[in-house]
């Protein structure tokens, strides 16, 4: 059994919350640079260049990449040999988010009683915490600030098994088309297929943590990713919906087994400000 202090977890999350809002990942930067080269629309090209310039300013001046610093989604992979000491784990995560968003001058976007009063909680808590118990004695922490505009375009379909591969393609392309410019394309399209209605949404979100454009290891799924990506980029939506070839930078699909009666499909869209950072304790 290895001991990990709750205070260390909180401090790590404080740091990651800030870093991820200032520093766009190298994989995303590389994909945007490639898109500047390949985009056919002059306006689209210009917008993509300005997104790269935005990332430079954010990194150098510690101004958030986007004013929407997101819901703080925190993934914890907890080794079964790890033992958290000196406090409660979810309190530590919450404290880490609160401090990170306050110290980093990040926007606090969470409201209480969402269907009525909608009073801001003032420190961006509560975070959304996903835990998974894994072998080993480490804790892997990933902080993903998820912006509201793209998250609002999430979709779930419980398809009939008979709809199969084509049903998945049609549903995905429709979801991206309906989102149009509102989800801040170029997008990373997170897709979950299989499981149950609850797990498939999480699968779609987790697929966004994969390095941008890394194909699914299963060749059939990787081929489906490429097919959907091509169809999405044929929609013509383009950067910020202002026309062009670059509507999505990548499609990431994660699958799991499903019930004989079910073909669940979920879409979780990630805007171009694709922020997530991890640390292993």
């Amino acid at each position: 059994m290895r001991e990990i202090k709750a205070s260390v977890i909180a401090e790590t999350i404080t740091r990651l919350s800030q870093e991820t809002n200032f520093d766009l990942g190298e994989d995303v930067l590389a994909a945007l640079k490639r898109a500047v080269e390949t985009e056919e629309s002059p306006l689209g090209k210009e917008i993509l260049s300005q997104l790269l310039e935005n990332a430079r300013i954010a990194r150098e001046e510690h101004i958030p990449l986007c004013q929407d610093c997101g819901t703080a989604v925190v993934f914890l992979e907890i080794g079964q040999e790890a033992h958290v000491t000196g406090g409660d784990l979810s309190t530590a995560v919450s404290e880490g988010v609160s401090r990170g968003y306050t110290r980093g001058y990040l926007r606090k976007s969470m409201v209480r009683q969402p269907f009525s009063a909608r009073m801001n909680t003032r420190d961006n808590t509560p975070p959304i915490i996903h835990t998974e118990i894994v072998p080993g004695d480490h804790i892997r922490i990933t902080v993903m600030p998820k912006g509201g505009g793209a998250e609002n375009m999430s979709r779930l379909a419980m398809l009939k098994p008979a709809e199969g591969r084509q049903g998945v393609i049609d549903f995905m392309v429709k979801a991206v088309n309906e989102a149009g410019g509102r989800a801040c394309p170029p997008l990373i399209v997170g897709v979950g297929i299989g499981g149950t209605s609850d797990t498939v949404m999480l699968l779609a979100k987790k697929s966004l943590l994969r390095p941008l454009g890394q194909p699914n290891p299963d060749p059939e799924t990787a081929e489906l990713e490429q097919t959907i990506l091509r169809k999405i980029n044929n929609l013509g939506i383009g950067p910020l919906g202002l026309g062009g070839r670059t509507t999505a930078l990548a499609v990431h699909i994660q699958t799991m087994p499903a019930h004989i009666a079910s073909l669940p499909v979920a879409v979780n869209l990630q805007c171009h400000s694709a922020r997530h950072k991890e640390a292993v304790l």
Binding site: A58, H62, I63, P64, L65, C66, Q67, D68, C69, Y105, L106, R107, S109, G148, G149, N152, R182
Partner: peptide
């Protein structure tokens, strides 16, 4: 728009458009 808070010495934080 809903900006992020202004860090010390700045007029405003990040300030891009919302949907």
């Amino acid at each position: 728009m809903g900006p992020s808070p202004a860090p010390p010495g700045r007029v405003i934080g990040a300030a891009g458009p919302t949907t």
